[in-house]
């Protein structure tokens, strides 16, 4: 699984380059993201604009990453396709995560605030 990361101040943006986060790769996804998150920074933005499909295993892995980050750090999501948002909405996990329309916009506003 491939990812691209950008660090800017207190934010780490992880761009998921895989098309699918599903049962075939959920464990790898969780382990790799945990590695990439490391011990800091406080905000992690998971950029899912390339992700076309997410199943319940993928959703479980995203929730697991949020729990690993703990109370003092946050996992935020960005760039969800309609198909992926539907899974978050149906399971009401859209109320658990902060979801941004675009990761680029978050980075831009963070840069201008700095």
């Amino acid at each position: 699984m491939e990812f691209e990361t950008t660090r800017q101040g207190g934010i780490l943006r992880i761009n998921v380059l895989a098309e699918r986060i599903d049962a075939a790769c959920a464990i790898e996804f969780k382990d790799r993201i945990r590695e990439l998150c490391g011990e800091e920074p406080p905000r992690v933005i998971l950029d899912m604009q390339r992700v076309d499909f997410l199943d319940s295993s993928g959703l479980g892995a995203v929730v697991a990453v949020m729990k690993i980050l703990g109370k003092d750090r946050s996992l935020e999501l960005a760039g969800l396709s309609t198909k992926v948002s539907k899974v978050f909405r149906l399971t009401r996990m859209d109320s658990v995560f902060k979801i941004h329309p675009s990761a680029a916009a978050v980075m831009k506003s963070n840069a201008s605030a700095a």
Binding site: D55, S56, S57, L59, G60, A61, V63, A64, M66, K67, V87, L90, T91, M93, V96
Partner: peptide, 10 residues
């Protein structure tokens, strides 16, 4: 927070 059980719900 649940990490499973989403499948049958969906």
């Amino acid at each position: 927070l649940p990490e499973g059980g989403f499948g049958w719900f969906l």
